[in-house]
Computed example of a mutant assay.
Amino acid sequence: MVNRRLLLRTGGVAAAAALGTAAVSSTAAAAQTTEPAPFADGQHPLGSGPTDGVTRTLLQQHPSPAEGWDAVQTLVQIPRNKESGRHSHPGVEVGYIIQGDVLMEFDDRPAIRLRTGDPFFIPNGAIHNARNVGTVTTKMLSTYVVDPTKPLVTTY
């Protein structure tokens, strides 16, 4: 069982280590694996302007039991009044809102409001934007099952 308080206090790093998972810090992630990480440095800032301060930190990456796919887990943090920016992934995203309030906007369907404790699912290739509409930094645990030959994030 994950210690949620530990995850919130440490941004996932200590929790991932406590669970015995791989790839935690930016340089340690690259040094511990020969597989390409979805982010060259383990932590990926998502742009400038409305996306300033938004980060996606790699917690772990492993080959999926389904041949040709990788399972990737990240901690996404979106400061107040910021957004991820329109983007998609080369596979599905299964997520959980650890803290905060998000308006998940889609190009091809209505937006959904997500709050602390809510799960979410984003289909393969769906263009979406996570907008922090709350009063604290939003923290999302996102797990992807993706094609490892493609970038984890494609921005629009």
Score class of each variant (00 low, 15 high):
92 V>N: 15
92 V>G: 04
72 V>S: 01
135 T>N: 14
70 D>H: 13
50 P>A: 12
57 T>A: 11
100 G>R: 03
53 G>I: 09
22 A>R: 06
65 P>I: 11
141 L>I: 08
105 E>K: 11
42 G>M: 04
87 H>A: 03
91 G>Q: 06
20 G>N: 10
130 A>F: 13
71 A>M: 13
44 H>P: 00
108 D>Y: 12
127 I>A: 14
44 H>F: 09
17 A>Q: 12
10 T>H: 00
3 N>R: 12
148 P>Y: 13
139 K>C: 06
32 Q>N: 12
6 L>E: 14
2 V>L: 15
115 R>H: 15
126 A>E: 13
77 Q>H: 02
23 A>D: 07
114 L>K: 05
147 D>T: 07
89 H>E: 09
16 A>N: 14
75 L>R: 09
40 A>L: 10
80 R>A: 11
64 S>A: 13
58 L>Y: 02
78 I>F: 06
119 P>C: 08
79 P>W: 10
139 K>I: 05
144 Y>N: 05
29 A>V: 02
66 A>Q: 08
49 G>R: 03
109 R>E: 13
144 Y>E: 01
39 F>T: 00
93 E>L: 09
98 I>R: 07
19 L>V: 00
51 T>V: 06
140 M>I: 12
137 T>M: 07
82 K>W: 01
7 L>Y: 07
21 T>Y: 07
14 A>H: 08
35 E>P: 01
41 D>S: 13
57 T>C: 00
66 A>F: 04
57 T>R: 10
6 L>Y: 04
80 R>E: 14
61 Q>S: 15
126 A>L: 02
117 G>T: 07
25 S>K: 05
28 A>C: 11
125 G>S: 07
81 N>W: 09
26 S>T: 04
16 A>F: 04
59 L>W: 01
131 R>A: 11
51 T>G: 07
145 V>D: 05
103 L>E: 14
110 P>A: 14
97 I>T: 05
105 E>F: 01
13 V>N: 09
65 P>E: 05
137 T>V: 12
141 L>W: 03
130 A>Q: 12
144 Y>P: 01
106 F>D: 00
10 T>D: 15
83 E>R: 13
19 L>Q: 08
68 G>F: 12
98 I>D: 13
89 H>M: 12
39 F>V: 00
37 A>T: 13
122 I>A: 11
100 G>V: 01
88 S>K: 14
114 L>W: 01
50 P>W: 08
7 L>T: 08
133 V>A: 06
34 T>M: 03
112 I>C: 03
52 D>F: 02
38 P>H: 06
59 L>D: 00
21 T>L: 15
71 A>F: 09
98 I>N: 14
71 A>E: 04
123 P>N: 11
20 G>S: 06
32 Q>H: 10
127 I>V: 15
93 E>V: 15
114 L>R: 10
11 G>Q: 08
29 A>M: 01
88 S>A: 12
155 T>G: 04
86 R>K: 13
40 A>F: 04
151 P>Y: 08
143 T>E: 08
8 L>N: 11
115 R>S: 15
131 R>C: 04
6 L>V: 05
8 L>V: 07
12 G>S: 02
96 Y>I: 04
38 P>D: 02
100 G>Y: 01
12 G>R: 01
53 G>L: 08
60 Q>V: 03
60 Q>W: 14
78 I>G: 00
137 T>G: 11
104 M>T: 05
81 N>G: 04
43 Q>F: 03
50 P>K: 06
5 R>T: 09
101 D>W: 04
